[in-house]
């Protein structure tokens, strides 16, 4: 037993190193005083970060990406909310087929979605803009939102809703006083997940973006200039830190929700992300 557990331990360490070591290189080269990404290191510098500060095109791309991500998160979570509520509570004809169609974009290759949407938009004579990217992102993010919110709705006890009606509250007021507060942690999780998905989505954005590029598309275009590579590393470091922060927020809300619901109904213990 001692031998096998030791080899498993080594396996786990190697596995984790393989996964995360490349990310550990980001901070190293983001502060390295050389345009060449290679060892040995040649002293610390902050000039890559000041280069970021001065790159106006990058800031525009970041602004575009954040605007797209926020809009996408709100729209897809809204759509997912309606769909998840309908799926959890009501029976209607062709329910399985309709739900399957909602989940379909999750398994369709993004390149196919990108090309198909581009063809349709061209045929309609619709000029490409931030909003065409939002359209594509909402399409791929809604299934994730639906999946997260379905879990939230299914773990809610139906008799809570009936109890509220029984106490004389109307359907609309019940939705706002009972249902919405109980699925709120799921809504927050869905907003964070769809925001993150949209922020780093590349293929669809690449196809549907016009002159307003998103951040991933901008980074891709910068890779052709080796001198700019270190500042892309600096940018990467900032984005990793931002993602970590979002992840911590999502985890905070998830734990709060399992505390809230425990004892009345069960919620899956594994993290959403």
């Amino acid at each position: 037993m001692g031998g096998s557990s030791k080899s498993l331990f080594i396996y786990a360490v190697v596995y984790l190193a393989f996964l995360y070591a490349p990310i550990a290189l980001l901070p190293i080269f983001a502060f390295n005083d050389s345009a060449v990404i290679a060892f040995p290191l040649s002293g610390g510098t902050l000039r890559w970060f000041s280069m970021l500060w001065e790159a106006k095109a990058l800031q525009t791309a970041l602004y575009n990406s954040v605007l797209i991500a926020i809009t996408t998160a709100l729209l897809s979570t809204g759509l997912g909310l309606f769909a998840a509520r309908a799926a959890a509570r009501y029976e209607f004809p062709a329910k399985r087929g309709i739900l399957g169609f909602i989940m379909l974009p999750m398994i369709l290759p993004e390149i196919i979605i990108g090309v198909a949407l581009l063809v349709v938009l061209m045929q309609l004579g619709q000029p490409l803009s931030i909003w065409t990217v939002v359209l594509g992102h909402v399409l791929v993010c809604t299934p994730f939102s639906f999946a997260i919110l379905s879990t939230a709705f299914n773990s809610m006890d139906n008799s809570l809703e009936e109890a509220s009606l029984d106490l004389g509250e109307s359907g609309t007021a019940t939705f706002f006083r009972v249902i919405l507060p109980l699925v709120a942690p799921g809504i927050v999780a869905s907003l964070l997940v769809t925001f993150t998905l949209s922020l780093d989505e590349f293929i669809i954005a690449f196809f549907l973006t016009g002159s307003d590029v998103t951040l991933p598309v901008y980074i891709w275009s910068q890779l052709r200039f080796p001198a700019r590579l270190p500042s892309v590393m600096a940018l990467g470091l900032l984005m990793v830190l931002m993602s970590l922060m979002l992840l911590l927020i999502a985890e905070f809300f998830r734990r709060r929700s399992s505390r809230l619901v425990s004892g009345v109904s069960s919620i899956p213990e594994e993290p959403l992300l």
Partner: peptide
Amino acid sequence: PANRRPTNMVFQSYAIFPHLSVAENVGYG
């Protein structure tokens, strides 16, 4: 509809609102 009937029911699972305090549960209606 249920919310316009002069009836009250105790649910098998008690249906106590987990996001509200005791007083808010009692005063819900």
